[in-house]
Amino acid sequence: MTGLILSRLVSSFIALLGAALVAFVALRLAPDDAARLTLGAFATDEAVAALRSEMGLDQSVIAQFFVYLQDFFTGDWGRSYSLGEPVRSLLGQRSPATLELGLYAFGMAFVSALGLALWGAHRKGPISDGVPKILGVLALGVPQFWFGLVLLIVGFEMTGLFPGPAGRLPATVTPPDGPTGMYTIDALLRGDLRTFATALHHLFLPALALGLLPFGFLYRLLRANLQDISDAPFALVARAHGQSRLRVMVATLLPNAIIPMLTASGLIFGQVLAGSVLVERVYNWPGAGMLVTQGVLQQDYAVVQVFILLSAVIYIVTNLVVDIVAALIDPRLAKGDA
């Protein structure tokens, strides 16, 4: 197991360097001069040259790359020229909103995929198995922003059950102060159940919209794996030992079938975080996705490159965690021979 963790750490580090290189090169390929962008079209050439030298743009590309790496890992992420604030504080304000939305969306998707796949595999009826299967296919085909709008129309306009696209909390509620920046968690930490409920109420629709696609993917994956594995001789033998169908399903088949789902979860969770832009847009969710869209549109590359690298870090860390969990479940993975 230690060997697995070490080798994964090394490969994670290499992947991170690769991601940094891609983000760096993409930035250098952009035709605009960062110093000129910052100072505007009317600045003198001398002022631009002075800023270029201050930003290190007059050094060699390789030297710039190392400075860029050093800055990233020491937390000096540069300054957004369009918003005039350090990127670090901008992302610090926005990321918790995206992370919270992503966690709820992914959590709902994972739990419902797990439950429905088990139920359908256990009781193969038209309701228990047929309906979720159709739902799983639809989930993969429905565009997130469209589904988000439909949810708004039904949940807000028609029935008024949920708040409209007004962000994370109504203006009348003071956001809870806390270490995570995620309102539901901070509210719970402070024991403020009313704010917790309000924040959850606001989260529900966007999380549903964002969670639909991962639900479809994870449900189909687990359902197919359960089907495959239920024909394995060890399922028959477990029943021959006197274990009930349900117990065999949960205790024997599920641990075997869930490993591909965990592996996929690592990728999907990263995708949910990095791809929440459209849903954030529909729900006016003040997350990192919105910040980055604006950054791209305004050629504010300082924001974009940090976001790319941060997404890479999230991908790599979640996949590292997933690999370790999978190896804990299946010891053959720890040895690298399965």
């Binding site: 001789p233 033998v237 006197g242 490993i259 053959r332």
Partner: peptide
């Protein structure tokens, strides 16, 4: 039947390679 299986009638499967769950 689950109360009969294992308890009153034991079963040995033909393929020892695939009759055990690999993750247990």
């Amino acid at each position: 039947m689950a109360a009969v299986r294992g308890n009153r009638i034991g079963f040995v499967h033909q393929d020892p390679m695939s009759a055990f769950s690999p993750v247990h």
